[in-house]
Nucleic acid binder design. Sequence first.
DNA 1: CAGGATCCTTTCAGATACTG
DNA 2: CAGTATCTGAAAGGATCCTG
Lengths: 133, 133
Amino acid sequence: MPRPSDNDCQMTRQILDRIGDKWSLYIIATLNDGSRRFNELKREIEGISQRMLTLSLRGLERDGLVTRTVFPTIPPRVDYALTPLGATLLEPVMALVRWAEKNKQPIAQARERFDEAANAAPEPGEGVVYRRR
Amino acid sequence: MPRPSDNDCQMTRQILDRIGDKWSLYIIATLNDGSRRFNELKREIEGISQRMLTLSLRGLERDGLVTRTVFPTIPPRVDYALTPLGATLLEPVMALVRWAEKNKQPIAQARERFDEAANAAPEPGEGVVYRRR
DNA sequence: CAGGATCCTTTCAGATACTG
DNA sequence: CAGTATCTGAAAGGATCCTG
């Protein structure tokens, strides 16, 4: 894998930043079922604020992953849809999601063990000392 | 893909957050070549601060992706290495990286087009008006 | 309906100083 | 060497109000 200093790596880094952000993946996954209007997305993606939906969609549009189609009617109507490029992103992403789902058990267990050890680690010869306050 | 509201999705979300953060992927990629000491990682991962390296390693250790081995010598020595689980993460991640590298050209072009359009869009009947200040 | 503009709080992350 | 602790500026993100 390229290093952060590599010029070649900047674009990769930026793409990972986008798909790694809090909402873009959900938008892409939702649009994979077909195009949506702004408020449809807002309703289907629970917890997203209007602001973040707008910003995320702008980012995806800027990267050519999503199209934005305005119908100059009253009231206005705006449809968002995946571009062919955006659609191809879903495959490698889903591979990662499958990995996460497949391994969430051992990860959750590792966390429990780690957190227990951190909270209950006795300092040798000093009695019990609780770390992290 | 599960929705953010699904309980089932929380772990997946958290895993994506981890691999999506700024440094974890570089750490994993570096450790894939073999175990490293703290300062070796710091030297090899250009631009990372001591603080962020510590925090990222703690997170990876907590999730069971990385092991931390302390040698109680003077000066102290600490080795970090991938767990078997951590090693399996690299494959789906690399699929994503390959996608990014393969498609960085069209994405960069889409950005140029988008940014130009945003900066030069003339308001109809109003002469040229520059958006974003 | 689909946002743009603002305000305001929370979180992140770099720099620095100190320690076993 | 391998960290921890603290401070601080920057950035992310939510809530709210306003508009064509």
